[in-house]
Structures are given as C-alpha cells and as structure tokens.
C-alpha cells in the first residue's frame, strides 16, 4: 500500500516499468524473470513462505519494504508467547467469541510457531525500513535501481524506523 504514497509519480513509474504480480493488476502468480521484487510483511503462515520463495526464485533484486518484512514488526510481539496460548485466547476465551473453534480447514495455511522476518527465509538484497516507509524513500530506491545504480546513497533523512 505504501507505494501508493508516491502519488502521481506512479504514472512516471508505469512508463518505465511493467507491473507483474501486484494488487493493482490482480495477477495471482509471479512470472519468471522479474527485475525487482518488493515484498512486504513477515512470514506468519506457510503460504507466506511459499510466496516469498517464489519471489526469490523469479526476482533478480528482492527488496523488503517495511518493518514487518525486516524484523517481523508488530506481529512479532507474539513470538514470546506459545502459539497454543494465543489460539486459546483468540478462539476460546475472548469475551466476544461466539463459536469456540480453532480453524482447521484444509484451505487455510498452517500458522507458524512465530513470525519470521523475510531474511530468515530467503536472501534479501535491500531493506527499506519504516512503518510505513516514506514515499520518498521508496521512490528514490526504485528510481536508483531502475537506472542501474545500487542503493548506497539514499538520503538519510528519508529513513525512519517507527
């Protein structure tokens, strides 16, 4: 979502690049030979891991965007608590729970024991921190990569860590 904060600059972006799997064009699976992959969010279920590995396989450069993908972010606050205890609180003991049932359908991916940051699963090339990252940082990183530079000279003022 935070990429939309670059506002009308997205029109310049579509002139020089082609969007593959993204929420905007609703393509479900990533195609082969992508140059840049932006990944947001940590891995909290098996489906997240599958998508992340697909991205790594097909993208030359993989960028973790946002705090969740870099450190696990706020959902990683559950990491210190046994998953069973969390399930019991959410699906049994919560004050507004109507049907006491822990979901266990074949269609639902398995929840992992903790939230994993992306770099613990696959190799990540660049990290853009922030919750959410500044639009200027995303813009600067994308324009640098598209014009063939690396990301060693991003403006420090555009980084934020909260």
């Amino acid at each position: 979502m935070s990429i939309l904060d670059i506002d009308e600059r997205i029109l310049q972006l579509v002139e020089v690049c082609e969007f593959d799997k993204s929420p905007i064009n609703d393509i479900k699976e990533i195609s082969e030979g992508c140059d840049i992959g932006l990944i947001e969010g940590g891995c909290c279920n098996t489906e997240n891991i599958r998508v992340l590995r697909e991205f790594r396989k097909h993208c030359k450069i993989l960028i973790a965007v946002g705090q969740c993908s870099i450190t696990g972010g706020l959902p990683a606050m559950r990491n210190g608590i046994p998953i069973r205890e969390i399930f019991e609180e959410v699906y049994y003991n919560g004050p507004t729970v109507a049907n006491k049932l822990i979901p266990n359908d074949e269609e639902i991916p398995h929840i992992l024991d903790r939230v994993y940051p992306c770099h613990e699963i696959v190799k990540i090339d660049y990290f853009l921190p922030g919750c959410a990252p500044r639009a200027d940082l995303i813009w600067e990183a994308l324009t640098a990569l598209i014009s063939g530079k690396d990301l060693s000279h991003l403006t420090y003022a555009n980084f934020k860590y909260d």
């Binding site: 279920n45 959902p75 969390i86 959410v90 919560g94 359908d105």
Partner: peptide, 27 residues
C-alpha cells in the same frame, strides 16, 4: 471466503501499558 491471516492481537496486547494499545492496534 477464508480469512487466512492470523496475528493474535487479542493476546499480545495483554500486559502492555494501556497508552501503547492505541498505537499497537493501528497496525
């Protein structure tokens, strides 16, 4: 319709200072 995401806010906001909760649940 399957809701595949699970985060457990209900549990991990417990025991936090109360002024933190408003900022935590924004996420």
């Amino acid at each position: 319709l399957h809701i595949v995401e699970f985060r457990g806010f209900e549990r991990f906001v417990q025991g936090r200072p109360y002024w933190e909760v408003a900022v935590l649940v924004q996420r």
